Amino acid sequence: MNDKEKILELLKQFVIEKKEPLELILVGALALPFYDVEFRFTYDLDAEIQQGNIEDLYFYLKSKGFESDLSENVSGWSVISMPSGYRERSQIVYQSDLLTIKILSPEDYIIMKLRRGTTQDIEDALAVAKTKKVKKQDLDVLYEKVLKESIKDTALFNFKKIYALFINELLKRQ
Rank of each mutant, 00 (worst) to 15 (best):
K135Y: 01
S81V: 09
E88M: 11
V15S: 07
I101K: 01
K133I: 05
V128K: 00
D124T: 08
L139Q: 05
K62G: 07
K6R: 14
M1N: 09
V134A: 05
D138F: 09
A155E: 15
E169N: 08
L139T: 08
I151T: 12
L57E: 10
L57Q: 08
A127E: 12
E55D: 13
T154M: 09
Y163L: 04
K152L: 15
S150A: 07
K132F: 09
I111V: 15
Q120W: 12
G117E: 11
F66P: 02
K19T: 07
R87Q: 10
S75N: 05
Y43Q: 11
A125T: 12
I167Y: 00
L170M: 15
L98M: 10
L10I: 13
L171H: 00
S71C: 11
L30V: 14
Q91Y: 00
T42N: 02
P83Q: 10
E107M: 07
V15T: 15
F39Y: 03
I16M: 09
V93L: 00
Q174M: 11
I151A: 08
Y94K: 05
F41K: 10
G28R: 07
K64F: 09
V134E: 01
I122W: 05
V134L: 07
L70G: 07
D97E: 15
L61Y: 06
L170W: 03
M82Y: 07
N73D: 15
